[in-house]
Design a protein around this nucleic acid. Sequence first.
DNA 1: TATGAATGAGCTTTCATTCAT
DNA 2: TATGAATGAAAGCTCATTCAT
Lengths: 234, 234, 234, 234
Amino acid sequence: MGDNASITGPTPAMNRPLTARGVRTRTNLVKAARALFERNGFLDTNVGDITARAHVAHGTFYTYFASKEEIFSEVVEMLLADTRRIADEEPPVAQDGWLSERIERANRGYLNAYVANARMMAVLEQVATFNPRLAQVRRMSRQYSVQRSAEAIRRWQGRGLIDLRIDPVYAANSLGSMVDRSAYVWIVLGESYQMDVAVEQLTRLYCNALGVPYHRDDPTCASTAGLRAEVVTT
Amino acid sequence: MGDNASITGPTPAMNRPLTARGVRTRTNLVKAARALFERNGFLDTNVGDITARAHVAHGTFYTYFASKEEIFSEVVEMLLADTRRIADEEPPVAQDGWLSERIERANRGYLNAYVANARMMAVLEQVATFNPRLAQVRRMSRQYSVQRSAEAIRRWQGRGLIDLRIDPVYAANSLGSMVDRSAYVWIVLGESYQMDVAVEQLTRLYCNALGVPYHRDDPTCASTAGLRAEVVTT
Amino acid sequence: MGDNASITGPTPAMNRPLTARGVRTRTNLVKAARALFERNGFLDTNVGDITARAHVAHGTFYTYFASKEEIFSEVVEMLLADTRRIADEEPPVAQDGWLSERIERANRGYLNAYVANARMMAVLEQVATFNPRLAQVRRMSRQYSVQRSAEAIRRWQGRGLIDLRIDPVYAANSLGSMVDRSAYVWIVLGESYQMDVAVEQLTRLYCNALGVPYHRDDPTCASTAGLRAEVVTT
Amino acid sequence: MGDNASITGPTPAMNRPLTARGVRTRTNLVKAARALFERNGFLDTNVGDITARAHVAHGTFYTYFASKEEIFSEVVEMLLADTRRIADEEPPVAQDGWLSERIERANRGYLNAYVANARMMAVLEQVATFNPRLAQVRRMSRQYSVQRSAEAIRRWQGRGLIDLRIDPVYAANSLGSMVDRSAYVWIVLGESYQMDVAVEQLTRLYCNALGVPYHRDDPTCASTAGLRAEVVTT
DNA sequence: TATGAATGAGCTTTCATTCAT
DNA sequence: TATGAATGAAAGCTCATTCAT
């Protein structure tokens, strides 16, 4: 009715402290939402579905979230945090070792994280195509990793390890796109692949592109037997 | 309504011959649809918008198309055809010249085609996230070019031009992803880039990855002055 | 979803020409709306009620009106036009006759119009308390008649018929309020009254207030027998 | 829910004695409610807004009031009491003085009370349009003052001060409506006015209507310089 | 008394699609 | 072919009120 109404009212999703019961309910909603987003995508999931799955009344949803978008954002936050966590779980490599070992570790971490969260990654991709706010979230996340890569490339160029004709930003962008999109194609679109081969091939291309020697090609290096396995393309 | 829809009734969009007037109306609808899809995306374009822009009655739409999806498919067909056409417009390079010239030509063609159809490419990306049929269309289109690339790589391996440790299918997939996704990031997401630099850098990375020498790095080759221009990243 | 959607779409309630059927449906909706607004007020009438009473589907409402407010505005337009028409139906009085005859005619016309549209007047009063647009409509309507009265008073002052210590605008406001609110109290709130007495008393007070002689008090004037009838107050 | 609500359970708002703390909470709620009703009207004030402003939990509201309507009623009680109090604050006039002095005092008192409570008066007007109980409250309040006026008129008629052709009840109703509605128009609707002029003009019209001489027009009476000041009409 | 989570009926609005003309 | 009115299933969101603690 009026426009100037309810400025003071109980804004949902504000960071007020919740009781134990509140925390439980809220968590149930988020879990239910994630499961449904993964199964049906954002568009085909409605608030009614979420509350039904969480066994609460429809209105309860709005005690905790102002909109479907808001709960989705929350799920995405979790997703990105989880992705970073998984990527970091890869056993670290010696700082003074092969560059390619570092690159391979990053690639393997990325693919593993993608596998663990493939459905949600796909849904985020979906939502980013029509929701500016989430497009922005995804973009920031992308830019952050591109920047880190670009800096690494610049550093390596400073140490004479990489050809100066390579532009760090373009290269970071493109090689990042390669890894990211390959993951999408394999894992989300379902092109057949084998994890080990995928990591090896991606890393080989990545290293070659930058002119960095690949440790697996060095005969003295601990090896990579059995990687060239059969690959069926759908 | 809906369920017992006539199976034998006048199926719209059947390939029966159209009168001159029919052809005109249909064309107007497709043009209007494309313009609106580009401007507003698939979800935010209604059938009512399309018919209004085409200056026909709402119901007329269903004389020619069975659904919003169907007209979208038609626009996409046009899009893909146009994309291929533009990509092929690149002046051909000598069959016996540098491999990298062929690669560069393909990359330039792809980026140019992307620029010409960026909006629709983005919308196709959108629709593919929730419409299986269009996901399939896009997938087939991707697989087709991946296959061509894979064959080329295999051929070049046969001629000893490319390292045998590179798997043709994985490489075609990943390098294709690199080009495709870079185009998306630059052109659709709006990351700042310069076309010439983008083509050069993409091609350099592509060639390096495959171990193919880049013709622009050869001092005897007709050169590429001024490419390393200033690049601002957003 | 997007914000920039559907600028070209079929805006409802636009003044496009309607087919006969369209006119019929639209009229039915307005009639149903008016009946329900009168019976239940604005707040307790919902779009579903209106369409049910008009025997059309819920969605059909939005083919013709953008909102409940819009159809209400239309009903109010009709109401005000009708009110003016009824008020003007009073047989005119001689321009050179008693001033009080003119005043009485206006009062009788106003009360008659109020009786014919009492319920809607009450509802308009209701809506005006929370809807700025309709508050404005009602205000304009009030100011218009106040201005006309004020000018008449000023004119009569110029002809020496009315005390100059009376401020035309204040007087027009207050005497207008008297007639208007008395009508509301009698007709809407249901205080018991008799039309003839009400007109006579209102006019007498009005004339006295302005110092204008009342024609009914003149023994030579065609008279008003039986007006002082019994009056029961609730 | 709703239907089988306990009849025997702890009825809220019952007149049981409150602890000091209870009194405090209750008072806070009423204060908060009044402030919000005045600012946003009845419809745009939620129970949640009220409790938030009173710094108590949502549920606490129902410890003291059975419904939103009930707290509104309470605020209205306060309002009416306050209105009467302010109206009575006008310095009394001599019982044997001019009748018009008594009338002017009453009018001034009414307008002053209206000014002090304009917002709530407007909201009461709003609620009375859809809530029978509050319509009744307002009606009783109106009838009470109409009756007092009617009796006064009747008394004055008995003393030969007022024309017998004036019906006391109709006149009390109409002149009361005049004062009441003029106040609404000036103070709530915001038509421009000056308090002194408004009181003088209202009283003049009132007295004229009843045929009572206005003391300010008597040259021997203590006068009212500067009342006909500039008046801007919106 | 106080809390705040939970309830769920109820509302407006959208829009792809159908159908009588 | 063309028309445009009619359809009706959804969907998101609000909020007065209840209730377990």
